[in-house]
Design a protein around this nucleic acid. Structure first.
Lengths: 345, 345
DNA sequence: AGGACAATTTAAAGCGCTTTAAGTTCTGGT
DNA sequence: ACCAGAACTTAAAGCGCTTTAAATTGTCCT
């Protein structure tokens, strides 16, 4: 009975099984422990062993079985990310989360909420995979529910203000963003600046507040005007029509988000109002939409990259550095100047 | 030493650990085997045991540890899905994949390719989680590479034709889709129908071919015109400008996809050409974009729902019904009539 | 009451990997 | 040579669950 060379290559249990740690160990003639150490880059094994193991692993096409290693190590080094797969902004966030997590040696497991799959289910999945921390993009659950979750695993809420729940929050300053928009418009000479609202969410509240504060700051209380709306194109269109029906058009319109702004643009163009010739229009979010040359919408970017990095940092601090008191990171959004704003004529 | 009531509630090893099978077993006073059987709904345990286990599990807030159960059971019942997180069409697919998979008792693990994370990495992740089958949305790898992958786990390629690689493919008939568009336009009286191409991918080839075939079918060989383009708005705009510079404008323009069609629309509107008054325009994909009221683009829908269902069915057939010979499912796309097509004047 | 058989329950052996304590082999110094 | 200590290597004990064969209990006849 030979035991050396081809012991592993042609195991009697069939050819189709994926190779295990044991197989590469047998091929090299060392223990599985050594192979495990080498493959994870843990210092200890000699250079010679390292090389031989690496070679054997490559030859066998060995690939670690995560489920097993996750189970064996107390740590999983997995960050659970809940996303709304239909949101382009979330897509950007995920992309940056991937790179940020990779840099600190963590991996991501994604779970998505959709119309037919709620936040709860999505989070359960993340937990079932043993995520060590939960990064929730735009969670809609109540502060209490999130706080309860936080007791199972550190929760980092991204993109939304959470009223005094004790959790980590990473978001950008929505009021500041709208403030920048108003500043920009005022600088261009506008005074009659109307705002199209975004409904009843926390974010909408912040942006509306930002608009009001900025107008006051510029001594334009008299021009404050908020039209009812929500986050859809249809709402923007409705609001714009309302303005068109009114006595006098404002010289600038600020919308809750890009979708809404595009509705505004559509209505104005249909009415033959020139943008930015007669009226300037600004959105919010820097959607893929706003970048289309046919819109070329001036808007506000939420810097997905920074938010993603901060979220990962927050998770790592919780997991590896024992931080326990919650922290809120508020980033400053950035005005993106495009073609729908111009000097007031 | 008591061993009954509070044995599990306050384990001496600390309060923070998540409860294990053993904990609920101890609380009920049965073996972990029984608890496992009950929790998975396997017939065997008596009704009485079942009720008590369920109650205890609920009280403890027990939640199965997937990594452990995946490892223990030979099967993982996990379908690995690779998506491009920036694609709205993929988002739709994922949504339907979730429901379809759930119906047959499978779960999804998602991995995304982005600009900074390639297809290979994404697939490795899926494999590391022990996905039993791989559902790849719009894979760009070569047929050979995919065939190699298929040897590790059944691969179902969605959305793209794969030249004679032996794997499952689910896609819609792109040539047929464009054919329907041409039929529709011809029915409206159009004869000068120009096509804006989509570049060098397999999909672009199929759509272009569909256009040519349909034109010939209607005896319009003389009117065949294909303009260079790709899948971007900018390309559509460029192509449209080229047409505007030419001697005579066609009465209808068919674009490779919605993005390109929107570029065409932008260029036409800038030149003061009425759509659909003077020229009809059609896109492809039924993007969220095409539904915007400001575009209201006539387009072709690829029925994400059906493709998702077929992909899951294909995976299940491979995994549970021992199908081994590859199958290609080609669905018929559906023309979506909106506002950018009208009778030729 | 005794026994065959069905209905439940459970002990125990893993799943493939990590990790730690316990070797084993090498150094170099005396 | 011999030995302490450094440098490597490995045996073995899990991680939390599933699964199977075997044990236990219950049921119904005769």
């Amino acid at each position: 009975m030979r035991v050396d060379d081809d012991a592993s290559a042609s195991r009697r249990d069939g050819a189709s099984k994926r190779p295990r740690l044991e197989d590469v160990a047998a091929r090299v003639g060392v223990s599985t422990a050594s192979v495990s150490l080498v493959l994870r880059g843990v210092p200890g094994p000699s250079e010679r062993t390292r090389q031989r193991v690496l070679k054997a692993a490559a030859e066998l096409g060995y690939q670690v079985d995560r489920t097993a290693s996750l189970l064996a190590s107390r740590r999983t080094r997995l960050l659970g990310v809940m996303v709304d797969i239909h949101s382009p902004f979330h897509a950007d966030l995920v992309e940056h989360l991937h790179t940020a997590a990779e840099e600190v040696g963590y991996d991501l497991v994604l779970s998505t909420q959709t119309r037919t799959r709620d936040e709860h289910t999505a989070v359960e999945t993340l937990l079932a995979f043993r995520s060590e921390a939960l990064i929730l993009l735009g969670p809609t659950a109540s502060g209490d529910a999130l706080a309860a979750l936080d007791r199972k695993a550190p929760v980092i809420a991204v993109g939304r203000r959470i009223a005094d729940a004790d959790l980590d929050v990473v978001r950008s300053a929505d009021d500041d963003g709208v403030g920048q928009v108003v500043d920009h418009l005022v600088e261009l000479g506008h005074r009659a600046i109307t705002y199209v609202d975004g409904g009843k969410g926390v974010i909408a509240t912040d942006r509306r507040r930002g608009y009001r504060a900025a107008m006051r700051r510029h001594g334009l209380e008299a021009h404050i005007g908020v039209l009812r709306g929500d986050n859809t194109e249809a709402a923007g269109e409705r609001a714009a029509r309302q303005l068109l029906d009114g006595a006098e058009l404002p010289t600038a319109i600020v919308a809750f988000n890009d979708q809404s702004a595009i509705g505004v643009l559509a209505a104005l163009s249909r009415a033959g109002v020139a943008v930015p010739g007669e009226v300037s229009v600004v959105g919010y979010d820097d959607d893929a939409l706003s970048r289309l040359s046919c819109f070329n919408l001036t808007t506000v970017s939420q810097s997905a990259r920074e938010q993603a990095r901060h979220a990962v940092v927050a998770a790592v601090e919780r997991l590896d550095q024992g931080r326990t008191e919650p922290r809120e990171v508020v980033l400053t959004p950035r005005l993106v100047l495009r073609g729908t704003t111009a000097e007031r004529v």
